[in-house]
Protein backbone atom coordinates (compact mmCIF):
# COMPACT_ATOMS: atom_id res chain seq x y z
CA UNK A 1 0.00 0.00 0.00
CA UNK A 2 1.28 3.42 -1.04
CA UNK A 3 1.02 6.10 1.57
CA UNK A 4 1.55 8.82 -1.04
CA UNK A 5 1.41 9.00 -4.83
CA UNK A 6 5.01 10.26 -4.70
CA UNK A 7 6.02 6.68 -4.36
CA UNK A 8 4.30 5.72 -7.62
CA UNK A 9 7.20 6.51 -9.92
CA UNK A 10 6.86 6.27 -13.71
CA UNK A 11 10.34 7.42 -14.71
CA UNK A 12 13.44 8.36 -12.76
CA UNK A 13 16.77 9.93 -13.67
CA UNK A 14 19.00 10.91 -10.78
CA UNK A 15 17.00 13.04 -8.40
CA UNK A 16 14.47 13.79 -11.14
CA UNK A 17 11.45 11.64 -10.66
CA UNK A 18 8.28 11.58 -12.72
CA UNK A 19 5.86 10.27 -10.14
CA UNK A 20 2.08 9.98 -10.05
CA UNK A 21 1.75 13.25 -8.14
CA UNK A 22 3.30 15.26 -10.95
CA UNK A 23 1.59 13.32 -13.74
CA UNK A 24 -1.88 13.60 -12.20
CA UNK A 25 -1.20 17.28 -11.52
CA UNK A 26 -0.41 17.79 -15.17
CA UNK A 27 -3.55 15.93 -16.11
CA UNK A 28 -5.63 18.12 -13.80
CA UNK A 29 -3.94 21.23 -15.14
CA UNK A 30 -4.67 20.12 -18.68
CA UNK A 31 -8.33 19.46 -17.87
CA UNK A 32 -8.76 22.79 -16.09
CA UNK A 33 -6.92 24.87 -18.67
CA UNK A 34 -8.28 23.17 -21.79
CA UNK A 35 -11.79 23.14 -20.34
CA UNK A 36 -11.51 26.85 -19.57
CA UNK A 37 -10.15 27.58 -23.02
CA UNK A 38 -12.93 25.65 -24.74
CA UNK A 39 -15.62 27.36 -22.74
CA UNK A 40 -14.21 30.89 -22.76
CA UNK A 41 -13.50 30.70 -26.48
CA UNK A 42 -17.13 31.50 -27.22
CA UNK A 43 -18.17 33.77 -24.41
CA UNK A 44 -21.13 36.02 -25.06
CA UNK A 45 -21.86 39.36 -23.45
CA UNK A 46 -25.56 39.33 -24.29
CA UNK A 47 -28.47 38.02 -22.22
CA UNK A 48 -28.25 34.59 -23.83
CA UNK A 49 -25.31 32.40 -22.78
CA UNK A 50 -24.34 28.75 -22.77
CA UNK A 51 -24.79 26.57 -19.67
CA UNK A 52 -20.99 26.11 -19.46
CA UNK A 53 -20.47 29.85 -19.48
CA UNK A 54 -23.13 30.10 -16.80
CA UNK A 55 -21.28 27.48 -14.74
CA UNK A 56 -17.96 29.29 -15.05
CA UNK A 57 -19.54 32.64 -14.19
CA UNK A 58 -21.24 31.13 -11.17
CA UNK A 59 -17.97 29.57 -9.97
CA UNK A 60 -15.94 32.74 -10.51
CA UNK A 61 -18.49 35.07 -8.95
CA UNK A 62 -18.93 32.68 -6.00
CA UNK A 63 -15.18 32.70 -5.36
CA UNK A 64 -15.16 36.50 -5.62
CA UNK A 65 -18.06 36.63 -3.17
CA UNK A 66 -16.22 34.42 -0.70
CA UNK A 67 -13.06 36.54 -0.97
CA UNK A 68 -15.14 39.65 -0.33
CA UNK A 69 -16.81 37.98 2.64
CA UNK A 70 -13.40 37.35 4.19
CA UNK A 71 -12.80 41.08 4.08
CA UNK A 72 -10.44 41.61 1.18
CA UNK A 73 -11.16 44.94 -0.40
CA UNK A 74 -10.26 44.27 -4.03
CA UNK A 75 -11.20 40.63 -4.65
CA UNK A 76 -10.17 40.64 -8.34
CA UNK A 77 -6.58 41.14 -7.25
CA UNK A 78 -6.54 37.90 -5.27
CA UNK A 79 -8.84 35.93 -7.54
CA UNK A 80 -6.10 34.32 -9.62
CA UNK A 81 -4.22 32.96 -6.64
CA UNK A 82 -7.07 32.02 -4.29
CA UNK A 83 -9.37 30.89 -7.10
CA UNK A 84 -6.71 28.60 -8.54
CA UNK A 85 -6.00 27.18 -5.09
CA UNK A 86 -9.65 26.32 -4.64
CA UNK A 87 -10.21 24.96 -8.14
CA UNK A 88 -7.05 22.84 -8.04
CA UNK A 89 -7.80 21.28 -4.67
CA UNK A 90 -11.49 20.81 -5.54
CA UNK A 91 -10.69 19.30 -8.94
CA UNK A 92 -8.10 16.99 -7.38
CA UNK A 93 -10.76 15.84 -4.95
CA UNK A 94 -13.56 15.46 -7.52
CA UNK A 95 -11.33 13.46 -9.83
CA UNK A 96 -11.12 10.68 -7.26
CA UNK A 97 -14.26 9.24 -8.87
CA UNK A 98 -11.98 8.20 -11.74
CA UNK A 99 -10.69 4.67 -11.29
CA UNK A 100 -6.91 4.38 -11.00
CA UNK A 101 -6.59 8.02 -10.08
CA UNK A 102 -4.83 9.24 -6.97
CA UNK A 103 -5.27 12.83 -5.92
CA UNK A 104 -2.06 14.88 -6.01
CA UNK A 105 -3.26 16.57 -2.81
CA UNK A 106 -2.87 13.23 -1.05
CA UNK A 107 0.85 13.88 -1.39
CA UNK A 108 2.46 15.93 1.34
CA UNK A 109 4.80 17.32 -1.31
CA UNK A 110 1.88 18.91 -3.15
CA UNK A 111 0.24 20.29 -0.03
CA UNK A 112 3.61 21.56 1.17
CA UNK A 113 4.14 23.26 -2.17
CA UNK A 114 0.69 24.88 -1.93
CA UNK A 115 1.37 25.92 1.67
CA UNK A 116 4.71 27.37 0.61
CA UNK A 117 2.90 29.34 -2.08
CA UNK A 118 0.62 30.72 0.63
CA UNK A 119 3.62 31.39 2.85
CA UNK A 120 5.21 33.46 0.08
CA UNK A 121 2.04 35.05 -1.21
CA UNK A 122 0.92 36.40 2.18
CA UNK A 123 3.91 38.71 2.72
CA UNK A 124 3.96 39.63 -0.97
CA UNK A 125 0.34 40.79 -0.88
CA UNK A 126 0.94 42.41 2.52
CA UNK A 127 3.96 44.35 1.35
CA UNK A 128 2.33 45.43 -1.91
CA UNK A 129 -0.69 46.55 0.02
CA UNK A 130 0.78 48.49 2.93
CA UNK A 131 4.49 48.75 2.17
CA UNK A 132 7.47 46.82 3.49
CA UNK A 133 7.94 48.79 6.70
CA UNK A 134 4.33 48.68 7.71
CA UNK A 135 4.18 44.99 6.92
CA UNK A 136 7.26 44.15 8.93
CA UNK A 137 5.96 46.34 11.72
CA UNK A 138 2.85 44.24 11.85
CA UNK A 139 4.97 41.36 13.23
CA UNK A 140 5.65 43.49 16.27
CA UNK A 141 2.02 44.13 17.01
CA UNK A 142 0.70 44.65 19.53
CA UNK A 143 4.18 44.69 21.21
CA UNK A 144 7.68 43.78 19.96
CA UNK A 145 7.63 40.89 22.40
CA UNK A 146 5.15 39.23 20.11
CA UNK A 147 7.67 39.11 17.20
CA UNK A 148 8.90 35.54 17.80
CA UNK A 149 5.42 34.30 18.40
CA UNK A 150 4.19 35.93 15.21
CA UNK A 151 7.04 34.33 13.26
CA UNK A 152 6.33 30.94 14.82
CA UNK A 153 2.66 31.45 14.04
CA UNK A 154 3.53 32.17 10.41
CA UNK A 155 5.48 28.95 10.07
CA UNK A 156 3.15 26.71 12.04
CA UNK A 157 0.04 27.82 10.26
CA UNK A 158 1.74 27.04 6.94
CA UNK A 159 2.65 23.65 8.28
CA UNK A 160 -0.87 23.19 9.53
CA UNK A 161 -2.26 24.08 6.11
CA UNK A 162 -0.08 21.49 4.43
CA UNK A 163 -0.64 18.73 6.92
CA UNK A 164 -4.40 19.34 7.25
CA UNK A 165 -5.04 19.00 3.55
CA UNK A 166 -2.62 16.08 3.19
CA UNK A 167 -4.07 14.28 6.19
CA UNK A 168 -7.65 14.60 4.98
CA UNK A 169 -6.98 13.63 1.39
CA UNK A 170 -4.59 10.84 2.26
CA UNK A 171 -6.86 9.45 4.94
CA UNK A 172 -9.76 9.43 2.51
CA UNK A 173 -7.76 7.43 0.02
CA UNK A 174 -6.43 5.16 2.75
CA UNK A 175 -9.84 4.48 4.22
CA UNK A 176 -11.23 3.53 0.82
CA UNK A 177 -8.26 1.26 0.19
CA UNK A 178 -8.66 -0.43 3.58
CA UNK A 179 -12.41 -0.81 3.19
CA UNK A 180 -11.98 -2.33 -0.25
CA UNK A 181 -9.94 -5.07 1.32
CA UNK A 182 -12.42 -5.63 4.18
CA UNK A 183 -15.85 -4.99 2.70
CA UNK A 184 -15.51 -4.66 -1.05
CA UNK A 185 -19.20 -3.80 -1.64
CA UNK A 186 -21.32 -0.71 -0.82
CA UNK A 187 -19.20 0.69 1.98
CA UNK A 188 -16.37 1.97 -0.23
CA UNK A 189 -18.98 3.81 -2.30
CA UNK A 190 -20.38 5.53 0.78
CA UNK A 191 -16.89 6.44 1.86
CA UNK A 192 -16.11 7.67 -1.66
CA UNK A 193 -19.12 10.01 -1.45
CA UNK A 194 -17.97 11.12 1.97
CA UNK A 195 -14.50 11.61 0.53
CA UNK A 196 -15.89 13.89 -2.18
CA UNK A 197 -17.61 15.97 0.47
CA UNK A 198 -14.46 16.07 2.58
CA UNK A 199 -12.43 17.09 -0.44
CA UNK A 200 -14.75 19.99 -1.22
CA UNK A 201 -14.73 21.08 2.39
CA UNK A 202 -10.96 20.93 2.47
CA UNK A 203 -10.70 22.95 -0.73
CA UNK A 204 -12.94 25.54 0.84
CA UNK A 205 -11.02 25.53 4.14
CA UNK A 206 -7.63 25.76 2.46
CA UNK A 207 -8.73 28.69 0.29
CA UNK A 208 -10.54 30.53 3.07
CA UNK A 209 -7.62 30.17 5.43
CA UNK A 210 -5.23 31.48 2.78
CA UNK A 211 -7.67 34.39 2.20
CA UNK A 212 -7.82 35.09 5.90
CA UNK A 213 -4.02 35.13 6.17
CA UNK A 214 -3.78 37.48 3.20
CA UNK A 215 -6.53 39.68 4.65
CA UNK A 216 -4.67 39.87 7.96
CA UNK A 217 -1.46 40.79 6.16
CA UNK A 218 -2.99 43.39 3.83
CA UNK A 219 -5.01 45.15 6.48
CA UNK A 220 -3.01 48.10 7.80
CA UNK A 221 -2.63 48.59 11.49
CA UNK A 222 -4.86 51.68 11.32
CA UNK A 223 -7.48 49.82 9.43
CA UNK A 224 -7.17 46.91 11.78
CA UNK A 225 -7.94 49.17 14.71
CA UNK A 226 -10.69 51.01 12.95
CA UNK A 227 -13.40 48.36 13.41
CA UNK A 228 -12.74 48.38 17.14
CA UNK A 229 -13.23 52.13 17.50
CA UNK A 230 -15.94 52.45 14.92
CA UNK A 231 -19.46 52.50 16.30
CA UNK A 232 -21.50 49.42 15.50
CA UNK A 233 -24.04 49.54 12.77
Amino acid sequence: MRLTPDNWIFWEYGFIKLNATIVFTWALMAVLVVGSMLITRRLTTGHERSRWQNLLEIVVTAIIGQIEDVGLQNPHRYLSFLGTLFLFVAAASLATVTPGYEPPTASLSTTAALALCVLVAVPLFGISSQGLAAYLKSYMQPTPIMLPFNLISEVTRTLALAVRLFGNMMSGAMIIAILLSITPFVFPIVMEVLGLLTGMVQAYIFTILAAVYIAAATRSSKAAKAPLSAPEG
Binding site: D6, F15, I16, K17, N19, T21, I22, T25, W26, M29, L32, V33, S36, S80, F81, G83, T84, L87, F88, P104, S107, S109, T110, A112, A113, L114, L116, C117
Partner: peptide, 19 residues
Protein backbone atom coordinates in the same frame (compact mmCIF):
# COMPACT_ATOMS: atom_id res chain seq x y z
CA UNK B 1 9.99 14.64 -1.79
CA UNK B 2 11.61 18.02 -2.32
CA UNK B 3 11.89 17.60 -6.07
CA UNK B 4 8.15 16.98 -6.22
CA UNK B 5 7.58 19.99 -3.98
CA UNK B 6 9.58 22.18 -6.35
CA UNK B 7 7.83 20.71 -9.37
CA UNK B 8 4.40 21.21 -7.78
CA UNK B 9 5.38 24.75 -6.83
CA UNK B 10 6.24 25.45 -10.45
CA UNK B 11 3.17 23.63 -11.67
CA UNK B 12 0.95 25.69 -9.41
CA UNK B 13 2.52 28.97 -10.51
CA UNK B 14 2.02 27.97 -14.16
CA UNK B 15 -1.55 26.92 -13.38
CA UNK B 16 -2.23 30.28 -11.74
CA UNK B 17 -1.01 32.07 -14.83
CA UNK B 18 -2.94 29.83 -17.24
CA UNK B 19 -6.14 30.05 -15.23
Amino acid sequence: DWFTVAAQLLNFIILVYLM
